[in-house]
Write a protein that binds this DNA or RNA. Structure first.
Lengths: 291, 291
DNA sequence: TCGACTTTGTGCGTGCGTTCACAAGGCTTA
DNA sequence: TAAGCCTTGTGAACGCACGCACAAAGTCGA
């Protein structure tokens, strides 16, 4: 069976400005076994890290580096080397034992895996403060993504020009999605109108949604939703800050915090808890970002 | 080492300059957040959901509801009831068997747990498109958070008034952080200046950072970093879209999105591709893909 | 050509998070 | 008071993900 590999359009836009002798490597046929492995299941956790690896790899390309060890790349991506190796192993074997990974081929491979060999056209619904920023934020999509339409339910906003594009009414959504081949939508509406906007996107044929709205979205099977919740992120940080403050004040083991009835000193300012118990200043390390 | 020339470690800190084995060793350290949690044992995963529960609860308060069952609240928050019950159990028993949870007390309790009984003052560094939006986005912090300072390294931006606040130079950062009792900083700079800005925040005494910059940040022990990566989110969506498209086209096709063109069989919605296991009943369901 | 060295790829143990399923507990009604 | 019903809180099982540690596999120098 013919592998749907790089037919036509050869080199990706970001192909290393370098001569690139390994072009052949790109064409190299991928063993069926490997492909199946990759197809069958790349853990979601790994997929989520691929963009990070890709960014690190591109930086390396920029610097003219041709080969990296898992240790180096992992450090650049802020993860452990073992994790990185396993993640990459899900894509097939693209490293050379005793040497490391060839940057150029790896960039190409990861890009292809993420579907970045094609351009993804997206529509943005909700042109408020955030929506405007996202539309203008040239690099928010880095590469591979193009906003082909801005929409808003507010008649007052429709017609305005934002980032060189005219905001269109929701009524035009379906038509644009179809004609432009859009399958990803970005939602930047207030929480109240989020579900309605989401429904409109789905009805139009979008199957992937990135939402910034503070609302729980209900979507039909087959539609992916990724949610970025700014308020929540801050609240989570606040939780940790409070925890640190408590630890600094009282003894660990949540002296007072453990009790349901915690006499919260409402008036007490969370003063710089900069110097918790014992923080070895000056030592840098990456901080877990959980997920 | 394969790096052609890694001369001078003068490379900017944010550059994926990897060498430095000692740094790798330091990464083994246990994230501050996790360690703190261990003292009281609220799983990070649960903490991350508390804001969502809180939002749902507030909506219930708005509607005058006084009691909710775990089933109802879970549905409103988009999670399973068992998960919700366990999450809440980490905060202590605030439910009444046979009845459910009393909304008002629960709101108060969760709020207190998240540290929302006090106001968290934050500074925002990087007043570009995104920074401006965040500063203006009145409700992006919902409640409990107040932006008390905008900073930017660009002299051209300093002095401008954004959202009623004058942008100040980075030189003023430390002073503001101290005088205002800030411990959380929001980073909205380009990737290039992120590490420097982060360093400035940490040096000023900030111990919690929310970054939107596409860069891996290195921070000292005791500082929490949460990262929101817009480009990555889109790429992850793209990955899934590609997967669906491949599946729709027929069998487990190649790993590459071959066709640069013909992304979507116009008008045809890539039906079902459910990669999420079965889900209870309900026409609509929330789509997994959480972080 | 051979041996020493380097780094990948992965088997395996461990711990966390999610889910099931049910006993415990509390309200309501007779 | 006692029986019945409802929902919480949680013991236990399951599965995923992470990290260690090492054999395999390749490079480099003699």
């Amino acid at each position: 069976m013919s592998t749907p590999e790089d037919t036509g359009r050869s080199a990706p836009p970001w192909a290393p400005a370098v001569p690139d002798p390994s072009a052949a490597a790109l064409q190299r046929a991928v063993p069926a076994a490997e492909r199946l492995l990759a197809e069958r299941g790349i853990p979601e956790a790994s997929v989520a890290r691929l963009p990070v690896y890709l960014r690190a790899l591109r930086a390396l390309v920029e610097r003219g580096v041709r080969t990296v060890s898992s240790e180096e790349l992992a450090a650049a991506a802020g993860v452990g080397s073992a994790k990185l190796r396993r993640d990459l192993s899900h894509l097939g074997s693209y490293g050379v034992r005793g040497v490391g990974y060839e940057v150029a081929p790896l960039v190409a491979h990861v890009s292809r895996e993420l579907g970045l060999t094609q351009e993804w056209r997206v529509v943005l619904v909700g042109v408020g403060n955030l929506g405007r920023a996202l539309a203008s934020h040239g690099g928010f999509a880095e590469r591979g993504t193009v906003v082909v339409g801005l929409f808003d339910a507010d008649p007052g906003v429709v017609g305005q020009e934002v980032a060189g594009t005219v905001v269109r009414p929701m009524a035009d959504l379906a038509e644009v999605v179809r004609s432009e081949g859009v399958c990803i939508g970005v939602l930047a509406t207030p929480g109240a109108g989020a579900q309605a906007a989401c429904d409109a996107l789905v009805a139009a044929g979008v199957t992937g949604v990135l939402t910034f709205a503070p609302a729980v979205l209900q979507v039909p099977e087959g539609v992916d939703v990724r949610k970025v919740d700014l308020a929540s992120e801050l609240q989570i940080l606040a939780f940790h800050e409070q925890r640190k403050a408590d630890a600094a004040r009282g003894g660990p083991a949540g002296a007072g915090a453990a009790q349901p009835v915690d006499p919260v000193p409402a008036g007490l300012a969370p003063r710089a808890t900069a110097h918790a118990p014992g923080h070895p200043r000056g030592v840098r390390r990456r901080t877990g970002v959980s997920r």
